[in-house]
Design a protein around this nucleic acid. Structure first.
Lengths: 166, 166
DNA sequence: AGAGGATGCGCAATAATCTTTCGTGCCTGC
DNA sequence: GCAGGCACGAAAGATTATTGCGCATCCTCT
């Protein structure tokens, strides 16, 4: 990890931009306690180093018509590397699948999916996921309600950690 | 849902800002095919209506020192509403827990957690999660590798849907 | 039909911000 | 002790955000 090369100002910048990615650079500079030009330079450096991967508007999925959110646990027949990456490639092509993580344990993958309604998810499930070669089992769980959904990482924990090592 | 009141330009704006939340308004206006002032007015309206919830920088968790990502399936002893919301409240207080969703089926909640390393997660698991009143069972799965992680919703699906209803 | 109102666009002007350039101070290592 | 690198901040010019206003379109109601 590269985080050790970051000073407290950089971490503050990251935390602020994670919380509000459209903050103006002057406002950001004010908050982290330096003037605008060096602040912008730091942001550019963070972007180029890959620590900032991008910026995204957070949209209200439900209001936009994606009323259904589902977690799917997928088990494969074969766990050969070629089969694993083949399945991952499939997931990247499915727009309803927003996240795909390979897990340890009995289940091979967990998928986070969104869909306009139950029937379009069922259609995806039976028409796409279940008919994919090498898929052995799929257990789906509907999200009844969301209780917390924070993007990114907790910078408080990072600060705590840094001060302890310093 | 409010999405029916949106025209194609609004949906394009949302899609563009979801993909790049720091795009300048001039660039955005150019892409959606109108001039800057009405474009900015639309963005403000979308923000005020709550369709845009905010903007976030996407940070590289691993490079920042959060090397571990874990899904935790939590079952509670009692599923009384007061107990459910009490547990949700707990989750909101735990910085390592980034997401908490209530599910149908055998498991009550799924938690997405990040941690600097395995031992700090174990510490959280045994010291916090497992000692929480009313928690009956916790099954954790480590993320071996990430295959897809797209924020937000697939606007292609939305466009498809709109054109079908229109 | 045609008047009146509402909605939304684009132009133009101003305010704010971004971005570059440049000079200065502060460490570091020789 | 003195180059050299590094990061800061001030100033200036370029770009962008934001407001005000006039115009066109569409709908509604007479």
């Amino acid at each position: 990890m590269v985080a050790t090369r970051l000073d407290e100002i950089d971490r503050k910048i990251l935390a602020e931009l994670q919380a509000d990615g459209r903050m103006t650079n002057v406002e950001l500079a004010k908050r982290v306690g330096i003037s605008a030009p060096p602040c912008l330079r730091r942001v550019r450096t963070l972007e180029e180093s890959g620590l900032i991967r991008g910026y995204h508007a957070e949209v209200n999925a439900r209001e936009l018509g994606f009323e259904v959110q589902v977690f799917a646990m997928v088990g494969l027949e074969s766990q050969a590397e070629s089969e694993l990456s083949a399945f991952e490639e499939r997931c990247r092509d499915w727009p309803l699948v927003r996240e795909c993580h390979m897990l340890n344990g009995e289940v091979d993958f967990i998928l986070k999916c969104v869909a306009p309604d139950l029937s379009s998810f069922q259609q995806f499930l039976t028409g796409e996921l279940l008919t994919t070669p090498n898929v052995a089992s799929v257990k789906t769980s509907l999200v009844i309600r969301g209780a917390k959904d924070e993007p990114g990482v907790p910078f408080d924990v990072l600060e705590e950690r840094m001060s302890r090592t310093a």
